[in-house]
């Protein structure tokens, strides 16, 4: 199955500078942004699913990256969102460092294989140091979209 991350990340799901300073507030802000842009129907249910994960694991994968994620019927299809924090947010990362780039992934309960595939592809993409640097320095959402499109396989 060939899944392209760029096809699931919409410009209206990108926050270039997130205001929140800690992880649950960051998740709240991202979800509120998605609800506002009509990408998510049930914000409360979505936050509940994401918070459940955060309590059972660290979604901070290190190198300044966090990927909060959940399978929940609060979304209709596989969905990605992006946020950037200039000062970094503590996502209890495995390397103890703050997260500057936050990707949120959600899928309906019945789309497990697409969900796992998206997480795997995104994690692999973000292991590349040049990609992380470009995402941190991008000027706008259009540039974020282009970086992902050009670097994913």
């Amino acid at each position: 199955m060939q899944l392209k991350i760029s096809e699931y990340l919409k410009p209206e799901a990108i926050i270039m500078e997130i205001k929140a300073k800690e992880k649950l507030a960051a998740i709240d802000e991202l979800v509120a942004h998605m609800v506002k842009n009509k990408l998510v129907s049930d914000g409360k249910e979505f936050i509940k699913a994401l918070a459940k994960r955060e309590n059972l694991e660290s979604t901070g994968i290190g190198d300044g990256i966090a990927i909060p994620h959940a399978r929940t019927n609060a979304v209709q299809d596989l969905l990605l969102a992006f946020a950037r924090s200039p000062k970094g947010i503590d996502f209890s990362s495995i390397d103890g460092k703050p997260s500057y780039i936050i990707f949120l992934i959600a899928s309906p309960e019945n789309q497990k294989s697409e969900y796992i595939m998206a997480l795997a592809k995104l994690s692999r993409l973000l292991r590349k140091h040049p990609v992380r640097e470009m995402l941190r320095n991008a000027k706008d959402s259009k540039e974020i979209m282009n970086i992902i499109k050009e670097n994913e396989e």
């Binding site: 459940k52 994960r53 059972l56 694991e57 660290s58 994968i61 399978r71 495995i94 497990k112 969900y115 796992i116 595939m117 997480l119 795997a120 592809k121 994690s123 692999r124 292991r127």
Partner: peptide, 25 residues
């Protein structure tokens, strides 16, 4: 690497469903 991430996230998905604390590496 891609297969590795898939296995990690499959493990995590099952762990979360069972209420088990997980850390992926």
């Amino acid at each position: 690497e891609e297969n590795g991430w898939k296995l990690l996230y499959l493990a995590e998905d099952e762990a979360v469903e069972n209420g088990v604390w997980t850390s992926l590496h």
